[in-house]
């Protein structure tokens, strides 16, 4: 359940940004989570619901944007099939993960007096 520690890092970061901008409340948070990042979006949302009470995010919606996992051959550029062996069928090179491991805080929408 590392989602709890991810949420605590999130609330800490958002709190610092809100203070820096003299915000009175946070309206919405947007995070990007890759399908291959090792984070369960549902658990993340549940942990967020639990921990946001009493923080500046108490009324803030959490938007989770998913990013698809994509492996590509770094030499010939072909995209690998899902679940395939992670080396290029054409040239045998080890594939590279182009997207899908994101755990990113994108945007904070805050209420400023």
């Amino acid at each position: 359940m590392h989602e709890y520690s991810i949420v605590s890092a999130l609330l800490e970061r958002v709190g610092a940004e809100a203070r820096a901008h003299n915000a009175t409340a946070v309206y919405r948070l947007t995070v990007r989570i890759g399908d291959a990042a090792g984070i369960e979006p549902e658990l993340l949302s549940k942990a967020y619901e639990h921990f946001r009470a009493g923080t500046i995010c108490a009324r803030a919606e959490l938007c989770v944007e998913r990013v698809a996992e994509r492996w590509v051959c770094p030499v010939c550029g072909r995209t690998l099939e899902r679940g395939a062996v992670l080396s290029c069928e054409g040239c045998g090179m080890p594939a590279r993960l182009m997207s899908g491991d994101e755990i990113i805080l994108e945007r904070i929408e805050m209420e400023v007096p």
Binding site: A9, R13, T24, I104, M110, E111, V112, P113
Partner: peptide, 26 residues
């Protein structure tokens, strides 16, 4: 403060962060 009609509602300001959530750990 809302500048459009003077209603006194707070303004919603988007702050772009684009940073890894675990940047503190990193």
């Amino acid at each position: 403060m809302c500048q459009d009609c003077g209603c006194g509602d707070p303004e919603i300001v988007p702050v772009e962060v684009h940073e890894r959530l675990l940047s503190g750990n990193d």
